[in-house]
Amino acid sequence: MRALSYRDKDTVIHALSPLAKLAWGGGLLVLSLIFNHPVYILILFLSIILMVKLAGVGREWASTLKFALWLGLSIIVINALFSYHGDHVLLTAPFRLPVVGQPVITLEAIAFGAVMALKLAVIISVFTLINLTIHPDDIMAVLLKMRLPYKSVLVTSLSTRFVPCLVEDMGRISDGYRTRGVQLDAGGWFRKLRNRAKITLALLSNSLDRAVQVAEAMEARAFGNGKKRVFYKDINISKMDAVTLGVGLLPLAAGIIVRVLGYGDYQYYPNLTAIQFGGWEWVMPAVMLLLLAAIVPLAFLKRRVDLD
């Protein structure tokens, strides 16, 4: 779990302003939702690979991608099994189900599932990249800069900080249970559920104890004493940061225009539309790719300015 948390690294991506990274990542999330076209989704995914590579977090990203892969596979399988739209039937079940009729597996349902899985991989990768390359306190500072209330931001930050502790607690409590003679995965589903419920209750109780201790420690250090809070490590936005922020937002702005112009959509049912590569059909994805990658030369430039 701790392997997936932020670590300081000397890379151009780590040195980028957190605001720019959040804008870029947030833009990517929105784009992955508004585009349906496989080529556009693939471009989003490629741009993530580029950033991951430059940030030197390939190994950590790969481990979350493994999780995304399993989730993606299940999306493909479920969609193929339960979505009977599409004209190209690959397999027909030899039985009928009530209400839905005779199950069929179509090429279109598989293709749709595959693109949804790729979208999911993009979304998970964005969160992983943000998590691995932005200091959690910087995320907090950015949220505060956006004038979100301090107490809410602090609570969110504290909850994420204690996730690794929760995972460790869970391991220890399960071990405690096993050493008392309980086989956690034995027996019927009711017994398993009961065992898990006991562990969850113990976990909850530990977390409440921890919450009281943290609150006590905060109170003892003048938390909430009514004075206007100062932020020692406030995020200062230099001109360079403002430019990278602007460039970070470009893909989102361009993507919205592209969608409004009618590009980036794709029909999966009843037949897969042929992918066109003529005229603007070709230019638009290329522009998107360029805009998504535009943050990279700026990141190198920023580092040079920082070093100077």
Binding site: H135, D137, S157, L158, Q213, R221, A222, F223
Partner: peptide, 21 residues
């Protein structure tokens, strides 16, 4: 572990001072 509120040492030391404005 349960008395540290922030994520790194410098911010931890600053926490109380920030609260006092």
């Amino acid at each position: 572990e349960n008395q540290l509120v922030t994520t790194d040492v410098e911010r931890e030391i600053a926490f109380g001072l920030e609260n006092l404005g």
